[in-house]
C-alpha cells in the first residue's frame, strides 16, 4: 500500500461518509438554534428534541406505519419500473406504436395526479390499491421517457457494426441497445424514487387508513405538530434509502457508465 492509496481511501471516506453526515448534523443544529433563539411555539415548529420525543413516544406504531408506506412505495415502484421498461421496449420496437402512444402518454402525464386521487377512491375504495396505483401513476412517466431516450440513443457506429455483422433485430436489441440504455434508464428511475414516495403520501392523505400520510392527517386533528414532523423525517429517510438502493443497483449493473461519461 502506498501513501497515495491510503490518501485516496481516506478522502473517499471523507467525501462519501463524513461530509454528508456533517451536513445533516449542521442542518439539524441550525433548526434547533432557530427554534430556540426565536423562541418558536412548538405547535408551529417543534424543535429537534420535540420531534425525537414524538418518535420515541410509540416507536412500534411509527415503525409499522413507515413500513406500510414503504411497502406501498416498493410495490408501486416495482410495477412502474417493470411496466415502464416493458412499454418502452414495445415503443422502441415499433415506430408506428411509438407515434401513436407518445402524445397520449404526454397528455396523461400532464394531468395533475392529485386530481385523480378522489377518482381512484371511487373506483377502488379504501385500502392498498388506490395508494399503490397513485405511486405507479406518478413514477411511471420519468421511467418510460428516460428508457425511451436511452433506447433511441445507440451510437451510429455501434448500430452500423451490428448491421455489418448481420445481427438480428433482437440480437442488436439485447446485446447493444438495451445495455447502452441502462445508464439513462437509471436517470429516470432515480428521478422517480422521490415521486413514488410523494405518490404514496398523496394516496394516504386523500383516504387515510395506515401509513405515514395517514399519521400526518391524524396528527393535524390532534394538534400534534411534533408527530407530523416525525412522520416527515421518516418519509425523508425512506426517500434517501430508496435513492441509494437504486444508485447501488446502478453501480452493480452499469459500472462502466461512470467511467465513459467522465
Amino acid at each position: 500500500m502506498t501513501d497515495t492509496d491510503a490518501d485516496s481511501r481516506l478522502s473517499m471516506t471523507w467525501n462519501n461518509g463524513v461530509l454528508p453526515v456533517l451536513g445533516a448534523v449542521l442542518a439539524i443544529g441550525l433548526w434547533w438554534l432557530l427554534t430556540a433563539a426565536l423562541d418558536i411555539d412548538p405547535f408551529y415548529v417543534p424543535s429537534p428534541p420535540d420531534v425525537l420525543d414524538a418518535m420515541l413516544r410509540d416507536p412500534r406504531y411509527l415503525a409499522d406505519e413507515t413500513w406500510t408506506t414503504f411497502q406501498r412505495v416498493l410495490i408501486g415502484f416495482g410495477v412502474a419500473v417493470a411496466g415502464g421498461l416493458g412499454l418502452a421496449i414495445v415503443l422502441a420496437a415499433s415506430r408506428t406504436v411509438e407515434r401513436m402512444t407518445m402524445p397520449l402518454l404526454a397528455a396523461v402525464n400532464a394531468i395533475p395526479k392529485v386530481a385523480l386521487a378522489p377518482l381512484l377512491l371511487v373506483w377502488m375504495g379504501f385500502g392498498n390499491s388506490p395508494k399503490i396505483v397513485m405511486v405507479v401513476l406518478v413514477s411511471f412517466f420519468p421511467i418510460i421517457v428516460s428508457t425511451m431516450a436511452g433506447l433511441t440513443s445507440t451510437p451510429a457506429d455501434l448500430a452500423e457494426l451490428a448491421r455489418s455483422l448481420k445481427a438480428s433485430w433482437w440480437q442488436t436489441f439485447v446485446k447493444i441497445r438495451l445495455v447502452w440504455a441502462l445508464p439513462q434508464m437509471f436517470v429516470g428511475i432515480k428521478v422517480a424514487t422521490p415521486l413514488a414516495i410523494i405518490g404514496a403520501v398523496i394516496g394516504e392523505v386523500v383516504s387515510p387508513d395506515h401509513g405515514l400520510g395517514s399519521v400526518i392527517v391524524g396528527s393535524g386533528a390532534n394538534s400534534d405538530t411534533a408527530l407530523a414532523f416525525a412522520a416527515l423525517v421518516l418519509l425523508a429517510v425512506a426517500g434517501v434509502v430508496l435513492f441509494y438502493v437504486v444508485a447501488a443497483l446502478e453501480r452493480l449493473l452499469a459500472p462502466w457508465a461512470r467511467a465513459i461519461s467522465s
Binding site: 451510437p155 457506429d157 455501434l158 452500423e160 457494426l161 448491421r163 455489418s164 455483422l165 448481420k166 446485446k175 447493444i176 445495455v179 452499469a254 462502466w256 457508465a257 467511467a259 465513459i260
Partner: peptide
Amino acid sequence: TEPRRDVAMVFQRPALLPW
C-alpha cells in the same frame, strides 16, 4: 445485396461495446 459474414468491417472509430 446485404452484409456478408465473410466480409469484415473496421471503422474509423473502434466501435467497442464499453461494458
